[in-house]
Write a protein that binds this DNA or RNA. Structure first.
Length: 619
RNA sequence: GCCUCGAUAGCUCAGCCUGGUAGAGCGAACGCCUCGUAAGCGUUAGGCCGUGGGAUCGAAUCCCACUCGAGGCUCCA
């Protein structure tokens, strides 16, 4: 596309002298020096294809920005060096003349066209003094992938499927018992939203010193404090352990790729993502928005037999990047940099894919449950092409029946995406926002696109069907869900908590007086040796204050140590879950905690055991 | 990206409409208190009122732009 190039400078003064004619068609003028004070100088290069419309538009933009700097004197200065695709001199001259005559209210001068000029100018120091533009004839459009453009053309039909496999008209379905599903359905199908407050997890993520915005980065790139890092690590570890148990092979692939690599170019147009671009040594790179291509490119280099299938590759991407629209980013719900567990399974045919799909469906349900959500916390949506539905009705019905409640159905008349079937679990928050967590897809396209092959029973090369699963969804989003769920508890009068296995501090010990500190240290050591995160409030504060601080940090077990405990075997332990003080021995408490966190990963405390040694994180 | 709103001490916020010396609580430092299950007491330090411009004798306060955040639109494979 051709663009007129303009470099605009707000100057204290400019002085120029025409030296000699550069081209035949140069303007006939008297080569005298000229001097202007307090003036905006616009260096202009007219490119091939520029026309009157461009001239008009350019003048509008120039005069608009001149208003902002409070100046109405303009010098149009022909300046060929701004472009390598210059218009012919005659066209350029006529467009420049047109620009000069185009605007009311401005005092417009021009420097002679086609002359070599010597000049001297002084540019003002304010931020708006320098400014460059390129003006084109049509609407300016950001380059978007074909997929993004085409997506809006998809024709969808919405239904509700009940566990018995029956499809219901979405407008006639009785949602009385399924309010969250109704919200999801409206959210997805009717695109209805109505919220006038920020989501509660934003306050909580700061209050609990989990995560915060980092203004020095790009929007949607969060920073995680020790508590947040610990929680993330635990979730990451848990999901990874579960995927490995299911049979995933953990791999690691690069976070950036060459946009012009042949495998990338065609994939781009099938994956509607806005990506971050990076220029490096003449290469145009982009930051990955999923682990798909890394794993596909890897699988392509494997020599595979049908006997190896299904082959499950897994990567936990820290990070995946999607340059979402800035207005779309909120707290931990939707980010531009996020941690995504991504597991692909290469399957030999549709039968095997369906079998594998069932396993991964169960895996995802298990993972979500382990994280601390139950089935009433999310609503399922399942999406497929009409053709796939007609050929696989009983398979779809089987999947839906496992959930045991109605699910949202989106059916596409034609296949538009690379997959024929996809489901996801959506968390519906208290403000009625729906966000996808776990998801799986059956991809019938990318095996071929990436030239991934296996050798079948007849010694023939075949492209596998590929399943794309994230058993938990983005880790940051999981934290968002846990915090939103806690906020909901709080709103409804219950005490907000994190699942015990994720609590940064599981037990806090508070000595009544400093003289009991030594006893507390020994106690803490014993508890810690049992893989429990315990800390010690060694600040010289009142007991009431220390307990309050522990409560506002959502700490589950609080042990107060005084004269009585030092001399007895039982401790008084405050349990946040029951809001009561219980008499119990350390061993009983340890047993209780081990029982509640069994099968879940453990990591040591990520900060000093001593509360007095920690900085206050107030954000 | 577009529209609307917001930004004042480390945090939460008042002051802004109607321009004239910058306020509170929490937190921090120091000291006192030595405490039994959700805030013990006192003193002190801490501010380019987000950044840059404009109008004004004078701006946290009025105007403009930018940055960051929030809500809506759009988007969400």
């Amino acid at each position: 596309m051709q663009n007129m190039r303009i470099l605009q400078l707000h100057c204290d003064y400019i002085e120029f002298t025409p030296v000699k004619k550069e081209i035949k068609s140069a303007e006939e003028i008297d080569p005298q020096s000229k001097h202007f004070d307090e003036i905006v100088v616009a260096f202009v290069a007219v490119e091939e294809g520029d026309n009157s419309e461009v001239a008009k538009k350019a003048m509008n933009e120039i005069s608009e920005s001149m208003k902002k700097v409070g100046c109405n004197k303009l010098l149009l200065y022909p300046y060929a060096h701004l472009s390598s695709k210059l218009a012919s001199p005659n066209t350029a001259l006529s467009i420049l003349k047109e620009m000069q005559s185009n605007v009311d209210g401005l005092d417009i001068h021009s420097a002679p066209f086609g002359w070599t000029k010597s000049y001297k100018l002084q540019v003002k120091g304010h931020p708006l003094a320098e400014n460059s533009k390129s003006i084109s004839a049509g609407e300016e459009k950001e380059s978007t992938s074909e997929a993004l453009k085409a997506e809006s053309k998809i024709q969808s039909f919405w239904h509700i499927m009940t566990p018995d496999g029956k499809m219901h008209d979405i407008n006639k379905f009785n949602f009385v018992k399924y309010q969250n599903l109704e919200v999801l359905a409206k959210y997805e199908a009717a695109k209805k939203r109505s919220v006038d407050e920020p989501p509660p997890h934003v306050k909580l993520m700061k209050k609990l010193a989990i995560a915060d915005y980092e203004a020095a980065s790009d929007a949607g790139n969060m920073r995680f404090f020790p508590n947040g890092r610990l929680i993330k690590s635990l979730i990451e570890r848990y999901v990874t352990e579960q995927v490995v148990e299911y049979g995933g092979f953990e791999v690691e692939t690069p976070i950036m790729y060459d946009s012009h690599h042949p495998s990338m170019e065609s994939y781009f147009n099938r994956f509607p993502a806005r990506q971050y671009n990076v220029q490096s040594e003449g290469k145009q790179l982009f930051l990955r928005f999923a682990a798909c291509f890394g794993q596909f490119l890897m699988a392509k280099d494997f020599q595979m037999s049908y006997k190896n299938l299904p082959l499950r590759l897994y990567e936990l991407t820290r990070y995946s990047f999607r340059r979402e629209q800035s207005g779309e980013l909120v707290g931990l719900r939707r980010l531009r940099a996020f941690t995504m567990p991504d597991c692909h399974a290469m399957c030999k045919d549709m039968e095997q894919s369906k079998e594998e799909f069932r396993k991964r469906f169960d895996l995802s349900r298990h993972v979500i449950k382990g994280i601390g959500l139950d089935e009433s916390d999310f609503e399922m949506a399942i999406r497929f092409t009409e053709e796939f539905y007609n050929e696989n009705k009983s398979f779809i019905e089987e999947i839906v029946s496992k959930i045991g409640k109605p699910v949202l159905v989106e059916m596409w008349k034609e296949r538009f995406f690379y997959f024929v079937l996809k489901w996801e679990f959506n968390y519906v928050d208290s403000l009625g926002k729906a966000s996808a967590l776990s998801t799986d897809q059956i991809d019938i396209e990318n095996g071929k696109r990436y030239n991934i092959e296996y050798i079948d029973e007849n010694n023939k090369p075949q492209n596998p069907i590929i399943l794309h699963n994230s058993p938990s969804g983005a880790v940051e989003r999981v934290i968002y869900v846990l915090l939103e769920k806690a906020a909901k508890d709080q709103k409804e009068g219950r005490k907000p908590t994190l699942p015990l296995w994720l609590a940064p501090t599981q037990v806090r010990i508070i000595p009544i007086k400093p003289e009991f500190l030594e006893y507390c240290e020994k106690l803490a050591e014993k508890i810690s040796q049992n893989n429990i995160r315990v800390d010690l409030d060694d600040r010289n504060e009142s007991v009431g204050k220390s307990i309050r601080d522990a409560e506002t940090d959502w700490i589950r077990y609080i042990i107060v140590i005084g004269e009585k405990e030092v001399n007895a075997s039982k401790l008084s332990i405050r349990d946040r879950k029951t809001s009561s003080v219980k008499e119990m021995s350390v061993d009983e408490m340890i047993k209780e905690i081990r029982e509640e966190t069994k099968d879940m990963p453990f990591l040591k405390m990520n900060m000093s055991r001593y509360v007095s040694k920690r900085p206050q994180i107030m954000v």
